[in-house]
Amino acid sequence: MTRHLLSRAGQAALVLWAAFTASYVLLQLLPGDSILIKFQNPELGLSPQQIAEIRAHYAAGSPLADYVSTLAGFLTGRLGYSIDTGAPVVERLAEALPETARLASAAFLLAVLIAVAIAFAASYSRTSWLRGALLSVPSLFISVPAFWLGILLIQIFSFRLKLVPVIGGSELQQLVLPVLTLAVPISAPIAQVLARAIDHVYAQPFVPVVEAKGATRWWVLWRHVARNAVLPTLTVAGLTLGELIAGSVVTETVFGRAGLGRLTEQAVNAQDTPVMLAVVVLAAAVFVLVSLIVDVLFPILDPRLKAAA
């Protein structure tokens, strides 16, 4: 068991390192030196010597030495300096993270609730048209552009119904629409996998055996089917956590909120590679960590995997 855990942790670290290296290489390939673009502007009136000093400050030396020092920096929590504002990247991240964390965690909870509600209602409904209608909801959710959904929600709830003020309003009021915008697309894959898993479990031969014991429909669904269907759903739910960071880019832009997504957008606009690198590595780290946790949880939820692990 511990062996398995250690090897999984090693693999996770390897993937994270590779993600860091790949994004580092990609972002260094940048045509046109982003530092030059920014500081060569004649209006700033910097001399070539000053530019060279700035470059040294941003540690632009030999490529390999650069890479090693950046990697060492990431390992010790020093993420370099933003090209855009000159502030340490750590500071900018620390500023942006709490806002996004609040938004993302609320959205994730809501997404899981929506998904579970859809999948359970679909599998419990006896009429086939109702079931079909419920099951097509996730495909609709997944087809809606998040930015458009956000705009639509603002239009309906802020401008038409005037339930949520456009500017001002309480913390909660400001959070409702962005959370909904972020949650809807993420709930779709979870609902789809859960519904499919429930179908799959219903087709297992042990279900009629439970029914033959005299169990009610709800008993079968809750105590057996749901319990078995959780396993594949957990994997997908874990995968979507990484998507939350990407989704926050759109959501925060639409609602004009500060946060990680907004920071990312600014970094792309300013070709601020250190910030972008930090954001990508952060997203990869969240993804890798969550997959690791899911992997560790699996044998606890499915006794068959205990032996395999």
Partner: peptide, 17 residues
């Protein structure tokens, strides 16, 4: 590794490039 970076962030990285 490719899966570990969300699609939109990957796309934004490519766009920076």
């Amino acid at each position: 590794v490719l899966l570990s970076v969300p699609g939109l962030l990957l796309a934004l990285t490519v766009i920076i490039l």
